[in-house]
Computed example of a mutant assay.
Amino acid sequence: MNLGENIKKLRKEKNLSQEQLAEMLNVSRQAVSKWESGKTYTDIDNLVLLRDIFNVTLDDLIINENKTKSEDTIEPSKSCTNNYIEYEKDEEDDELSVNLMIGGLTIGMAIGLITDNFMWGTAGSFLGMGIGYILEYIRKAEPYHK
Rank of each mutant, 00 (worst) to 15 (best):
K34P: 15
Q18V: 07
D45W: 08
S97Y: 08
L58W: 12
E5H: 14
A141S: 07
N99H: 14
L21N: 00
L21P: 01
K8A: 08
I114N: 12
G108A: 07
I111D: 01
G112R: 01
S33R: 01
M24L: 12
F54E: 07
N82G: 03
F118C: 03
L10P: 06
L58F: 05
E86T: 03
D52F: 01
S97C: 09
L100F: 15
G128H: 14
I44R: 05
L3G: 01
K34M: 09
T57Q: 07
N2Y: 11
V32T: 13
T42Y: 08
I44H: 10
G128V: 09
E5S: 11
S70P: 01
N2A: 08
T81H: 09
F54K: 08
K14C: 00
L105C: 06
N15W: 12
G128C: 10
I63A: 01
S79D: 09
I7P: 11
L50M: 10
I111Y: 07
G103K: 00
N6A: 02
T68R: 03
G128E: 10
S125F: 13
F126T: 03
N26E: 03
P143F: 10
N15L: 13
E136Q: 10
Y41G: 13
E91H: 11
S17L: 10
V98E: 14
Q30R: 03
A22E: 10
E75N: 02
I138T: 06
L61C: 04
K89V: 01
L135C: 09
L113N: 06
W35S: 10
E36N: 12
R51Q: 12
N82F: 15
F126D: 01
L135M: 08
E86Q: 02
V48M: 12
G128S: 08
A22N: 08
L49A: 09
M129W: 11
N2H: 10
N99R: 14
I134F: 15
S28L: 11
D93C: 13
N46R: 12
N2V: 11
L58S: 09
Y144P: 13
V98R: 08
N82K: 02
M101F: 13
S33M: 01
A31E: 05
G132V: 04
G112K: 03
D60C: 11
Y84S: 01
A22W: 04
N83W: 13
